[in-house]
Structure formats: C-alpha cells, structure tokens
Design a protein around this nucleic acid. Structure first.
Length: 831
DNA sequence: GATATACTAATTTTT
DNA sequence: TTAGTATATC
C-alpha cells in the first residue's frame, strides 16, 4: 500500500529543475517513462491512442487549463497521460506534481495507471491523493502553526457527534432538543464554506442551541485543540490559515509544485477551492500550470457544499486559461447517449456539452422503461432479467443496480439471497464503521495517542468492567479540572480514595494495561501488539462469550483488522490510513452484480445497468425538491444523468406504483425524468415480455397477494376506464400463457396493466412525443379523467376519500384515514 | 450498575 | 418498519 509515509523527504528535489526534454533525463520514473516511447517515430507510445482533444489536453502543459470532460470521454486517461507526459519530457520530478482527487478510489486508480506508464514505482508520486490526505500531510508538517502537535488525531463523524453532545450538555442545553448530529452537520457545512466560528452569519449562529450556535462552535474548536484533534474540515481549513498567515510556508509550496492537477473539479467546495487557489495562484502574475478536469453535468455533491460555480470561475481566476471540451464518448451506445443528452438538456445554466459517439451501431437496443406494482416485484423482475442476461453469457460483474437511496438496496439483497445470485454492495455499511472495529481502533488510538479522550471514553467500560456512568463522569471531571488527558486522570484517581474500591481496582487495572501497552509501542511489531491489546483487555473474550448470532462474524472482522494492519509499517500509519480511507477494498475475484447508490457509481461503468425507483418523491427525492428548489431538482437531474451514462450497452429504468416508506405504503407516480426522455431512444418494455414471470413453482407466495387480488377483483367489475381494460387484457394474457390462473401471478400482471394505462391516460391535448405519449398511443385514445373534484373514491391501499384536485391523470385525494395523497386515476374507483 | 422494555424518532447522497 | 435512545426495574 502506498500510503503517505512519513519517510518521504519533504523538499527533496526542491531546487532541482529536471533537464528539459530531448536530452536524456535523470534516473527514476522519468527515465522509465522515456523508455516507454516508441523506438521509431516521434510520437511517444502513450500519446498514440488519444484523440485530438485529449491530446491537446495532455500536451498543453503550461499555463492554466480547464478540461470539460463529459461522461465516458476518457477523463482519467487524460489526467494520467498528462502526468506521464510531464514526467517523460522531464518537465518535473514526480514529487513536484500535485495531483488532487476527490475520492480515495480515484487516487488509487490514478496511481495504478501512472504505474503502468512509468513502471511500478508509484510511491514516487508523493503528492497524488485526495484533498484530505494531502491536507493531513501538510498539516502534520506544520501542525504547530495551527496550534496542534504533529501527532494529532483525526476524528470521524462518530467521534465528532459524541464530542458535540458533551459540549451541548456542558452548555446546559437539552441535547434532545438540540441534537448533536444536527449540529455536526451544521459545523460541517460551515467548514465546507471555510467559515470558522467568527465567520458564520448571525442567522446561522442563532439557529442552533437557543442562539448559542457560535459559542458552541467556539467551544468545539477549543475542545479539539486540547484534544490535539482535527475533524475532516480542519484538514483543509488549518492549511488554508497556515498559508495565509505564513507567506514563507506558502512560498515553499509554490516553489515545490510545478504542476497542479485537479480531478472532478465540479465537486470542489469553497474550502477546497480556496486551498487550491492559494497553492496555484502565484505572486507577480506568473501563470500557474494548473489543470482542472471536471464536468458540470455531473456535479452531484451540492448538498455537501460543492460549488459548480468553481468551474465557471476558473477563467476569471486564471486569465488566459485554455478551455478544452471532451465530448467524444467511448462508453455508451447512441441510444443511451441520446437519452442522457435529452434529459440533461432540461437543466439551465450548463456550460453546454453534447456527447457523441464515433461508433453508432444499428443493432444497439433502445433504453427500456419498465413498470412494476411494488418494490418487491421490481426486485423480483430485475433479478429475473439479470438471470436472463446471465444465461445469455453475460458476467454478473458487468451488471449493476444503481439506486437513489440506500434503503432501496435491501429489497434487492433479500431477493438475490433467495435466488442465490451473487451480489456486492458497494459503499454500504463500511468495514471501519462496524462497532467491533471502532472499539478495537479506540484501544489502538489510546495506546498511540494517550490524550485521545474520545477513544478512551469509548472503551473504558468495554468490555464491562464495572465502570459506570458515575465513575466515568468522575474521571472526566478530574481530567477537566487538572487539564490532563483522561487516561492520566484515571491513573491518578485510581491511586486516590475518591472511588469505591471496586471501581478503583478496575480503573487501576485499565490504566496499568494502557501504560504497559504504550511502553511496548515502540519496540513491538504492531500487529503483535494489537493482538495483545485485544486479548489482554478482554475485548476478544467479550465476543467469544457473546452468544448472539453476529458474534462469530465480529471475531472474524477483528482478525481481518489485524491482518490488514500488516500492510503498514506502524500502528500510527495504520490509524492514519483508516481515518482517511474508511472503505475497505473489495475483492474483485467474485462474479457478482454490483448494488450501489447513484452517488457512489460516479466514475464507474457497466455493460448493463438497472435504475430502479424512478418515482416522484424518491427520484427526484422529495427532500431535494423541498430544500433545494429548482437547483435541487437540477442536481437530481444531474444524478439521473450520471446514472444513465454509466451504461455501456443495456439500460433498464424502472418505476413502481407502490412503495413502502417508513413502513407505510405510499402510492407513487412515475418520475418526471421519465417524461423527459426522448421517444427516439427509449421504449416501454411490455409487461407480457419474457422478462417477467410470476412465482416459480415452490416459490414463496407473495404475502400481499391474496388480499390484493380480492380487492382488485371486486372493483374490477365496476371499473371501466381504458386503463382497466388494458389491465384486464394483460391479466388474461398472462394467466393463460404462464402458470394458469394462480391468483398471485395474475395479481402481478394486473399491476403492470394498471400502471401502464394510468400513466398514459388523460392529458388529451399533448402530442404523443414522450414516453408518456407513447403509452397513450399504445393503450387507448386518450380520455379525460373520469372523475371530477369532490368525487368520493375508493383506493386499494388508502381506502375512501374525496378528490380535491385533478391534474390530467393525477388526482389529489384527501383520504379519510391516510391523509392527502397524489394517486393515478386508474388506481381509484368511484366509492 | 446492568438489563429489559418502551418509546420515540427518523429515515439521501459521504470525502 | 426499524433502529436507536430513554426510562424503569432488578
């Protein structure tokens, strides 16, 4: 693992200027990259496969460059080739290139790819990493300028919340009324905007804790200082302050970094932007060699403080910038690109790119839109489609399900478990966030950093040692009173008479243990020490004695933890790595379907992509609409665009009519994004297609099946809309073709029919241009809604209610029991 | 001080 | 629905 180990000399090649191209350069990477050139001809190998725009982006090494790279246009390739080019032409040494990515995954991938160009000596790129990892590296170097000691700890969200809870309580506030979690989010967003306690607006300051927001923020920062700790935001804010207050330090970095590259520029927030600008902008009008690569259409982290405007500002901040657009897409079929382009064109304020492909293929299929009755059926049908692809020889590794919200994953997991289909959840609950891992890490942290009170508090009574709330409080107070770490206070308390004998003995034992481990720290192999700590503390035994079902798994995880420590040279470097890289690497050797959120899918590609849950309220997410207004909607649309452009060949969209949210059934209507897809590239998958089946023989029965069927049957007799007729038709086809008249199956079919028809009915004035229009044309000539405001209607799930508004086929109904809902007219009948 | 039960709340995305 | 927290009880 190429972590940022401390043994890399800081200003190694500082004053050296590599010999410019042509003449043979010094040894190391550059020489190896030179060797990668073709023996004959002038063009180096690595440039050969690039298209003209890509090549321009690679070869324009001097001055500011903004690369607007659409999805699948070879963005990463440009970045890595550019670095290879800089190295091989001896423009800079590896250590003089600052390359910043947004995620650890991207950093890793760049390292690997550069490794291919220049040999395996990747550690020669010490300044390639995420904003945060590079920020830490700088901060460790200059910690004292931020009032910290170099060994400071990095707190994760969990630590921060526990700390804030203490602070809120200490301020005499009710921590139920003023949740620490919420305040942590507020602080995070302030820090994303590079605002310290003194900078936040009066309104923000008053919004929390009875107007004590600012005081709490101050108290929090003060507490971090005494704990010798940082949160994530500080990893950037401290360096920014250091640069501003110490021009000499900044100058050193200016001299050091000859080339700066930034990936995913559209995702940078204000703090990152300021950090970057400080490093890039040179005094005296010198043009910095800064290259930012991004795609405004893929900006999906606005909620986390990302500013798309940073892209727009680039040309203002860096005069005479070269702007290069990459629009030639190598990933997707023309239909997929067409669908994505049409969708994203609904956004305003874009820089305006249009993806195109050089290789249109007439055999490519259209984008498919499917409907299902509920999320359970959605999961079942997608599972069957996946099995079909599999039977046709596709690898599961080439397929992915991308969801809007992680709760959607569960249904797929359940289904795939029963099917015995391999799957892999990406970005789910993370290894390092598991309780046992965090406990173990807390032990290690206290050993490595005795002042880490948060870690100490976490495990002081884990496993149970008879040190309850009262004792902990006492230790805590003693530490605060004497201004010492809790571990030290505990040791002192244990020697005094202030505690009951039992607690005293226990406390004495704990602090003696930690003392012993700390003394072993320098001279014991760290994995050995780690094992010793977990054994002697009784932590391993705690899980061995635990009879719950998860206990063996937790023990396995602990073993895995120790094993993963072997890759690091010390306990400290391991702790640092974990703080920054919360994800554990996935094993790729298994053939499995990937399940992940749309956010974590950015940057990935799959041959076949399923996008379930395209319903109003879920996607676009209601909260994005409520809190973000139009810009919130546009970000959701960009998220949809990201989803569509992940697919290389096959793309399936799904929506359902009923979804259970918070345990309550909600009737849902199709996402407006489906309406925004172009007819030419999209088709509606028919319910009767071979991709849906009912229940296989011996399958578990749908628990809702029978009752739903009964109700549907009963109202079918009186219902006579076109939609219903269509449903009937489908039902008959299905029943006769497949498993006869098994009720459960027929019910599923009805679901399809209803959705399709309801979707399309009404809105008589619109030409059938969109998917919706197509459905209208397919089902029946459009008919006006058979209802009028005030009608009393019955709905399968919600019962009776009165119609309060009608928009085309979408009714707003005040249900007697379920409250106001928006439903499709085909789902209700006159009461 | 530990455990069990009851209740509540909150349900997006994450470096 | 579930997960996480607060309270009551042993």
């Amino acid at each position: 693992m190429a972590g940022f180990s401390d043994d890399i000399p800081f200003f190694d090649d500082d004053d050296a200027t590599p010999v410019p191209a042509k003449s043979q350069g010094g040894g190391g990477l550059a020489a190896r990259a030179m060797a990668a050139r073709k023996p004959s001809g002038n063009m180096p190998d690595y440039l050969a496969g690039l298209n003209p725009e890509q090549r321009l982006a690679v070869e324009t090494t001097e001055g500011p460059v903004l690369v607007l790279a659409g999805a699948g246009t070879g963005k990463t390739r440009v970045l890595t080739t550019r670095i290879a080019h800089i190295l091989s032409t001896n423009r800079a040494y590896p250590s003089q290139i600052l390359a910043v990515t947004f995620t650890n995954k991207a950093a890793r991938e760049m390292k690997t790819r550069i490794g291919h160009f220049v040999g395996e000596a990747i550690e020669g790129m010490p300044w390639l990493g995420t904003f945060h990892s590079i920020g830490v590296k700088m901060l460790r170097r200059h910690a004292e300028l931020a009032g910290l000691k170099s060994g400071f700890t990095i707190l994760d969200t969990d630590d921060v919340i526990r700390l804030l809870k203490q602070i809120i309580q200490a301020e005499g506030l009710d921590d139920k009324r003023w949740p620490a979690r919420q305040f942590a989010n507020m602080i995070d967003s302030w820090k994303n905007k590079a605002q310290g306690p003194k900078d936040i607006s009066e309104g923000d300051a008053r919004a929390f804790g009875n107007g004590k927001g600012r005081e709490l923020y101050y108290a929090y920062q003060a507490r971090l200082q005494t704990l010798n700790a940082c949160d994530f935001g500080d990893l950037l804010l401290h360096p920014i302050r250091i640069f501003r207050e110490n021009p000499d330090v900044l100058r050193e970095y200016h001299q050091k970094f000859r080339y700066i590259l930034v990936d995913e520029y559209q995702d940078t927030n204000v703090a990152q932007y300021m950090w970057l600008r400080l490093l890039a902008q040179r005094p005296g009008g010198e043009r910095p060699n800064v290259c930012c690569v991004g795609d405004d259409d893929q900006s999906i982290y606005g909620w986390r403080g990302a500013e798309v405007d940073n892209i727009l500002r680039f040309e203002k901040d860096f005069s005479n910038a070269t702007v290069i657009k990459l629009e030639r897409n190598y990933r997707s079929t023309a239909h997929i690109l067409g669908a994505a382009a049409h969708l994203i064109a609904h956004n305003e304020g874009r820089l305006g790119k249009t993806l195109f492909t050089d290789h249109p293929n007439p055999d490519d299929g259209l984008v498919q839109v499917h409907a299902a009755w509920d999320s359970e059926e959605e999961a079942r049908a997608i599972g069957e489609e996946i099995e079909q692809y599999q039977r046709k020889g596709h690898n599961l590794n080439d397929m992915a399900i991308l969801v809007r919200a992680s709760f959607q994953m569960r249904e797929f997991e359940d289904r795939f478990v029963t099917l015995g289909l391999n799957y892999r959840v990406i970005g789910g609950p993370r290894f390092y966030e598991r309780q046992e891992i965090r406990d173990a890490m807390a032990y290690f942290r206290v050993v490595a950093q005795g002042a880490d009170d948060l870690a100490f508090e976490r495990i002081i009574n884990v496993p149970k040692r008879g040190l309850g709330e009262a004792t902990i409080r006492q230790v805590h107070d003693a530490a605060r009173a004497r201004n010492t770490p809790m571990l030290q206070a505990a040791a002192e308390l244990a020697e005094s008479d202030e505690l009951k004998p039992k607690a005293r003995a226990s406390l004495r034992q704990v602090s003696a243990n930690f003392h012993r481990w700390q003394e072993l720290l320098e001279n014991t192999p760290h994995t050995e020490l780690a094992e010793m700590i977990l054994d002697e503390s009784g932590y391993t035994d705690m899980w061995k004695n635990d009879k719950s079902a998860e206990a063996p798994g937790r023990l396995d995880n602990l073993k895995e933890l120790i094993r993963s420590m072997e890759e690091y040279e010390s306990l400290r470097s391991f702790l640092e790595h974990v703080a920054l890289v919360m994800d554990a690497e996935q094993q790729e050797d298994l053939d499995a379907v990937s399940i992940m959120t749309l956010h974590s899918a950015k940057g990935l590609e799959f041959e076949t992509v399923f996008l379930p849950g395209w319903e109003e309220g879920l996607f676009p997410h209601q909260r994005a609409l409520d809190e973000g207004g139009r810009s919130g909607l546009e970000e959701e649309r960009r998220l949809a665009y990201v989803g569509l452009t992940r697919a290389k060949k096959n793309l399936h969209l799904w929506f359902v009519s009923n979804r259970r949210i918070h345990g309550l059934w909600q009737s849902t209507i199709p996402s407006r994004f489906i309406d925004e897809l172009p007819e030419a590239h999209v088709e509606v998958a028919e319910g009767g297609g071979n991709s849906y089946g009912g229940y296989g023989v011996g399958d578990r029965r749908n628990p809702y099946g029978s009752s739903r069927f009964d109700k549907v049957e009963s109202f079918s007799n009186t219902y006579a809309t076109p939609g219903w007729q269509r449903a009937q038709k489908n039902k008959t086809e299905a029943t006769s073709r497949n498993w006869g008249n098994r009720s459960g199956h027929a019910v599923e079919r009805i679901g399809y029919g209803e959705v399709d028809s309801g979707f399309g009915a009404g809105r008589g004035s619109v030409k059938p241009r969109t998917i919706e229009g197509e459905l209208v044309a397919k089902s029946v000539a459009s008919a006006p809604s058979p209802f009028s405001v005030g009608d009393r209607v019955f709905h399968i799930k919600f019962g009776n209610g009165n119609i309060s508004n009608i928009e085309g086929n979408k009714l707003t109904v005040d249900f007697d029991k379920a409250g106001q809902k928006r439903v499709l007219d085909s789902f209700v009948q006159p009461a």
